[in-house]
Amino acid sequence: MTLSNMRKNGLILALFAVIATALVVGTEKLTASQIERQAQQQLLSTLNQIIPPARHDNDLYQSCRLLTLPQAQQPSTLYRAWLAQKPQAVAMQVTAPNGYSGAIRLLVAVDNSGYVMGVRVLEHKETPGLGDKIETRKSDWINEFNGKTVKGADDDRWAVKRDGGMFDQFTGATITPRAVVGAVERAVEFIKANPEKVYSDNLPHCQEQHHE
């Protein structure tokens, strides 16, 4: 009685498990390439917003390289744009750790002369309606960076207006813009100071990238 019941239950449950797993695995196989394509498109559309197609002739997605910034624990991702074999611009993923509610991930594009081409927010957890004005969907504040550059190591214009800088803060939220400004400043400063590192051919390729 006990044995037959055990056998029956065990086999049925195993059967279901096998079928269910097979189903999941099968779907995964079928959709894998499509998912990869989607992720790629998503990133490309962002990249193309800040590095216009006219400025490059290489495949930005394939140009991905990893670079470890000084004092950073994890490497940052770089996308480098070339036009006729000449380095044109680089888009760098940076993280502003001191957002109002956690880290803000940014993509900062800087051209070969050190001017900001565009900044986009990849991910953030700021208060909706307040800190989320860093998104282009909500406000065009982030475009304030376009065409700016850092002069010297201690450029005190790179701060929000309340702290005496040149960037607006949003009413009610100073911490978020402060964090973004700081992170962009660091990125621009580094790229401007180290073009040889950024455009170096020896950087490792991104592996297993964009597995969100």
Binding site: N5, R7, N9, L11, L13, A17, V18
Partner: peptide
């Protein structure tokens, strides 16, 4: 792996 796990749990439950 899942099949075996399920088998074991099935046996336990049956018991």
């Amino acid at each position: 792996a899942l099949g075996v796990l399920a088998l074991i749990f099935g046996l336990v439950l049956g018991f």
